[in-house]
Design a protein around this nucleic acid. Structure first.
Lengths: 218, 218
DNA sequence: TAGATTGTTAATCGATTAACAATC
DNA sequence: TAGATTGTTAATCGATTAACAATC
């Protein structure tokens, strides 16, 4: 039985990966947890703890080899392998994702886009044809799709999620404002933009309130 | 000195708000922390603890009035007030945000869009004109913009962030894959889509690994 | 070897859950 | 009043930070 890695650790890994990529571009060969901690504004202790969940990637007295750590984190995240994905919902958000070239660099290959709007079906976005959803199940099986991005209204999301899961999809990247219930073995990653904006609103407002309090004579 | 509310609590508030909105639509008048906890799949204890950070919104023996709690959370999140915002970067992602009607319901009014691409400048998206970035500072002041959404490449984001902050913006909704350094009194909410997708990748892969382990004879 | 820095254990801090008295 | 359910304190759990022996 492997030790369960905490969600907090996982969510920090992509950020480590991003910083290591930048260091690589700068031509930096090795880095200590202390130097990295200053760049990233986290504690060196946290960096070492996080990495040691997955193994000892460093060397005493030396630090971490940037290139090596970079590729190791890629392996941990599974972005060294290919993930075939589809985008369901070919509106602006779906097209924005389709157009984001960086994903392909990380092994995410967009195999198809789907929509119910007949005016979109048949269009080609960045070499990817937009299809009707009737085709969904067959396409998933034939193209070994493992991830589906759902950029559709919340009313349609649960039904479409069920369909893609039955056809074999293992991960759902959910942009719809609804919580999806999925069976064991399937994971959902939510991107709830409106909730993100509300959090920003809270913080902007509480900043203002704090400012006013300090100004107000007490 | 007010007690600092933890980030974890804040990040759960929009979800409470969403569920309360749904209950309201269903015509539910009151709900106990226990019933709500079952719907939301969290503990009743957490709901009560979270809410009591901001005040006692419930009543012993009765529960919570849905309508009342809904409006109170809106006040806490600051979505009862108007926030003027601009979108910088009028590509697919910027347009997706501009087209998302729900934001306006929550008090977020998109006053303008900006881009550097001359072919986009002058176009109108959902009644909002796309302007060149030369105009930025004047527009922010004249329209009392408090929030700027940055849907631009990471190379441009730091410079644009500095400019909008100098002009008076208090919150940055950052979609660029870079960490922004901002002065006191300004907040950044990051939406790093590529990091979100990597987290999904990790979880999909670790599911597969787990499945294989269980199948493998030990 | 001496200095540097990791890997890892121990201490602290914070967040979640449980329990229950207060009260509607 | 009796039952229900909150608000809140106490207990538990987990995550972060500090410290330091191991080791390159």
């Amino acid at each position: 039985m492997e030790k369960q890695i905490s969600k907090a650790v996982i969510s920090r890994l992509p950020r480590y990966y991003r910083y290591l990529g930048e260091l690589l571009e700068e031509g930096v060969e090795r880095i200590s947890s202390n130097e990295l901690s200053q760049r990233m504004r986290v504690t060196a202790s946290q960096i070492r703890q996080d990495l040691n969940n997955f193994g000892g990637f460093g060397q005493q007295g030396y630090g971490y080899n940037v290139k090596y750590l970079y590729t190791e984190i890629a392996k941990i995240l599974g972005i060294d392998r290919q993930h075939n994905l589809i985008i369901i919902g070919a509106g602006n958000l779906g097209q924005a994702i389709a157009n984001y070239a960086n994903f392909e660099k990380r092994g995410f290959v967009i195999k198809g886009m789907f929509d119910i709007n007949p005016r979109l079906i048949g269009l080609v976005v960045r070499g990817i044809e937009i299809r009707g959803v009737d085709d969904l199940e067959r396409f998933i099986v034939e193209n070994q799709i493992s991830i589906a991005a759902l950029t559709i209204p919340k009313t349609k999301a649960p039904e479409i999620a069920d369909r893609v899961i039955k056809a074999g999809v293992k991960g759902i990247w959910n942009f719809a404002h609804v919580d999806l219930n999925v069976p064991d073995g399937v994971v959902v990653e939510n991107v709830h933009l409106s909730e993100s904006l509300m959090r920003l609103s809270y913080r902007v407002c509480s900043m203002q309130d704090k400012g006013n309090e300090e100004k107000r004579p007490s």
